[in-house]
Amino acid sequence: MHLEALNLAADVLAAIPNPSPEEPPGGAGFLKILGWGAWIVFGLGVLGILFAAGKMMIDQKSGHGGGQHAQSLGMVLVGCIVASVASGIVGGVVAAAGGMS
């Protein structure tokens, strides 16, 4: 039964078309929108880092420490890393699925 399921899965994967990696009509506009999105995301990342740093400084001055805001700074940095490698992640998934070679 497992072998039949694997054979069926292989047949389905073999039937998936492999498109050529050429830009479709209007692709330049889409890439422009992606560029704007990237600028917005990284701008928000910078604002997030500045906000977390400011909260850490205020809490440190009032004697509360800054541990809670250090955690939010870490989350902002993780978000920046994910945004930075987004195209690599998508490219890796597409390549692993056998598409756009």
Rank of each mutant, 00 (worst) to 15 (best):
L3A: 14
G45L: 02
M75Q: 08
G79N: 11
G26M: 11
K32H: 09
A15L: 06
Q60P: 00
F51G: 02
L13T: 00
K55G: 05
V46Q: 12
G45P: 01
I40F: 05
L31G: 10
A10S: 12
E23A: 15
G65H: 03
L6E: 14
P24C: 02
K32T: 12
L50H: 10
V76L: 00
I33V: 15
V12G: 02
L73C: 04
V46K: 05
G65L: 02
K55Y: 11
A52Q: 09
G35W: 02
Q68T: 01
F30M: 14
G67R: 08
G37W: 00
G43H: 03
L73Y: 09
A15S: 12
S72P: 01
G63Y: 05
L34H: 09
V78C: 04
L73K: 07
G74Q: 04
G67V: 00
L77E: 08
S72Q: 03
A53E: 06
Q71M: 10
A52K: 01
W39N: 13
L47R: 01
L77S: 06
H69S: 07
G54F: 04
Q60A: 12
A53P: 00
N7F: 10
A10C: 10
G79K: 02
H69K: 06
A53Q: 07
I16S: 01
W39C: 13
D11I: 07
Q71E: 04
L8C: 10
G48N: 05
V78S: 06
I49D: 02
I58G: 00
P21R: 03
N18K: 15
S20I: 05
L3T: 09
M75H: 06
P17L: 08
P19A: 10
L6F: 06
Q60E: 10
A53H: 00
K55C: 12
G29H: 13
G37N: 04
N7Q: 13
V12Y: 07
P25G: 12
N18R: 14
G67K: 04
L73W: 07
H2K: 13
K61F: 09
M56Q: 14
L34Q: 13
A70T: 08
G74L: 05
N18Y: 05
L6V: 10
G54V: 03
G63W: 07
A52W: 01
L77M: 10
G29L: 15
L31N: 15
A9T: 10
A14N: 13
G79T: 04
V78M: 07
A15R: 04
P25S: 14
Q68D: 09
G65Y: 01
G35I: 06
L50D: 12
L44E: 09
P19H: 12
S20R: 13
M56N: 07
L8E: 13
G29E: 14
L73A: 15
Q60G: 12
G63H: 01
A28L: 11
G65F: 00
I49F: 02
L6G: 01
S62Q: 10
A28C: 05
N18Q: 07
I33E: 15
H2Y: 08
K55L: 11
H64L: 05
V41H: 09
G74T: 01
K61M: 13
A28Q: 14
V41A: 14
L44I: 06
G74R: 05
Q60I: 00
G43A: 03
E23K: 11
I40D: 02
P24V: 04
L34C: 12
H64P: 01
M56K: 13
E4F: 11
W36S: 09
